[in-house]
Amino acid sequence: MKIGLLFSGQGAQQVGMGADLYANVPEYQQVIDRASQVLGYDLAQLTAEDEQKLAQTQYVQPAILAMSTGIITALGDTLPKPIAGLGLSLGEYSALTAAGVMDYEQAVAIIKDRGAYMQAVGNANPGKMVAIMGDDQALIEGVLEKLQSQGKRVYAANYNTFAQLVIGGIAEDVDEAVTALTEAGIKRTVALPVSGAFHTPLLQEAADQLGERIADETFHEMTFPIYSNTTSDVFDIDQLHDVLTRQLMSPTYFAQALQKMLDAGVDTLIEVGPSSTLIKFAKKIAPKTVKRYAITDLESFNEVKALLTSEEGV
């Protein structure tokens, strides 16, 4: 059994996420309460009740980090050492924490500030993001390059699968790109419910702020490899500050990073967090022989834990 861990990113959140885990798994509850101490507010109460705040970047990012870390902590020794880990954007911090690169409280404090920077920049520079469905991603890139040459601010943002590329930028420029892509043969596009054009140059100011914020942070060697969205390769600790800073305004290459994990021998994928979005992406990338599980609540936690502890394994 060669496990690859996947860590949910922003957008996976929902009111009530983790509530049953918090009520029934003491190890999980302790992780959430430790986050509350760092954040200065009751995270369990916020995720259980406050839909308005949970929709805001500055609140949802610590919530997802804490939930993912809580699940990994609660699995404890029943989880074999993973072959590799991969998170989507925010999820990279959960992955790096699981691999011992960051202390948990350190990660919560950084994410608290990262979310605030992104929220503020998104409010000041509203953007739009749209998922473009189609396996000819070179065509999409070509249309964007043509528009950029005309001064339009629209960019490739998230390579989620080899047939889903999210674009982002100034709203009117994104709308123009969607029109051009439709005329070029793209048949399906989906606007995303976000406040900013994340992973595009519109987040330059937030990236600058994050760079200053983490400049003096000390990170540790990975206990297992974590793949970067920004480079699609395993993180180099010596370049971690730079890559995490660039991540905010650079495209994410989740599909390419996941493919490299699979090429490294991963045969079982387990996503931890509020949803199974990354497992759904993986279904489009990984062969059917790769087993896929998502731990999103108490029921799925117990099911996967039982599988991990069974004689047959996962």
Rank of each mutant, 00 (worst) to 15 (best):
L144N: 01
D103S: 11
I270Q: 06
M249C: 00
L298M: 10
E27Q: 14
V60K: 02
S275A: 15
L65N: 03
A294K: 05
R292W: 09
T200W: 01
D175G: 00
Q247C: 05
V130C: 00
T268R: 07
L262C: 10
Q137A: 05
N229R: 00
G76D: 11
R246C: 07
I32H: 05
V121K: 06
G168W: 10
D103N: 09
A197N: 03
L5G: 14
Q259L: 13
F254I: 07
R34V: 12
S149T: 09
V101S: 01
A12V: 09
T182M: 03
E141S: 15
A177Y: 01
V314T: 09
L96P: 08
D208E: 13
M249P: 01
G313K: 10
E303T: 07
Q247H: 15
F162V: 08
I110H: 01
L203D: 02
G185Q: 04
D77M: 12
Y227S: 14
L210A: 08
T69R: 11
G122A: 14
V38H: 05
S68V: 06
S275G: 09
V38T: 10
V31P: 02
I140K: 00
S195L: 10
G265F: 07
G91K: 03
A116S: 14
R246L: 14
A95S: 13
E27Y: 04
S276H: 12
K260Q: 12
K260D: 02
Y117P: 03
Q14A: 15
K284G: 04
D263M: 07
D267C: 14
A306T: 11
H220E: 10
I237S: 02
T309C: 08
M261W: 01
L96A: 09
M118H: 08
A19Q: 13
Y59W: 10
L6M: 14
G76L: 10
S68Q: 02
Q58A: 15
L75K: 04
A99C: 04
T268S: 12
L240I: 15
G185C: 08
A107R: 08
G127S: 11
Y155T: 00
D267M: 10
V15R: 13
T78A: 15
R213D: 06
A124I: 04
L54N: 10
L202E: 03
I226E: 06
G11K: 03
Q30P: 04
N302Y: 02
Q137T: 04
Q150D: 11
K187A: 15
I237Q: 01
K305M: 10
V25F: 03
V121S: 06
D242M: 09
R292S: 09
E176D: 07
L307Y: 00
L86V: 09
Q256S: 13
T69N: 08
V15L: 15
G169M: 01
E49H: 15
